[in-house]
């Protein structure tokens, strides 16, 4: 045993510690304090008609998707086709949260690409987005029939992710 071995011992300790640190908090599993809890309540005017309100009250009773989107969001365009397919399959009601966007742009966008949503809530000021802990668009929340957040996905949806992360979490639906 010589004194020159101490740096090695010290570093091995540090590495073990850092590995534990990485395992401790998986940074990609972004803190979703909402998972397993009731979705934060909200009520917002719909995108297409400011007179009509939409909110958590509309969701209860079945599995529901809440998709956060915006016209400036490139990846939203990427997942849009899949959302259209999903809506056509009628397997789950999809609601939109139009986020930090402008109403005319958003309506034109849905006109061009099609509208997969039963309705979109209009949230230009990021009020509900803040309550729901939205990091960026697109983001998709899966709510169970009781209105509890079951899962939250960051980034665009595609059929593989849908099957792996969403369908597997929905009990007794389409299975």
């Amino acid at each position: 045993m010589n004194r020159f071995i101490w740096p090695l011992v010290l570093v091995l300790g540090l590495i073990v510690f850092l590995v534990m640190g990485l395992r401790h908090g998986d940074p990609r599993a972004l803190p979703s304090p909402f998972i397993g809890k009731p979705a934060p309540e909200f009520e917002l005017p719909t995108l297409k008609n400011p007179e009509v309100m939409i909110g958590t009250a509309n969701f209860a009773g079945e599995y529901t998707l809440v998709n956060v989107w915006a016209t400036w969001c490139v990846m939203c365009r990427a997942e849009h086709g899949f959302l259209m397919d999903l809506a056509a399959s009628k397997s789950i009601p999809i609601y939109g949260l139009n986020w930090r966007d402008s109403r005319p742009d958003a309506i034109r966008w849905l006109g061009e690409l099609g509208d997969p949503y039963i309705a979109s809530a209009y949230d230009p000021q990021n009020r509900v987005g803040m309550d729901w802990g939205v990091y960026g668009a697109p983001e998709t929340f899966l709510l169970d029939p009781e209105g509890t957040v079951v899962y939250k996905h960051l980034g665009p949806l595609d059929p593989a992710i849908w099957e792996r992360e969403f369908l597997s979490r929905m009990q007794g639906v389409n299975q």
């Binding site: 010589n2 020159f4 071995i5 740096p7 570093v11 590495i15 590995v19 990485l22």
Partner: peptide
């Protein structure tokens, strides 16, 4: 990515310090 860098860091530093010892 974190694990990869950490593994690489480990190989480089542990190797160097073992040689040093």
């Amino acid at each position: 990515r974190g694990f990869f860098i950490l593994a690489f860091l480990g190989v480089v530093v542990v190797g160097a310090l073992a040689l040093y010892a």
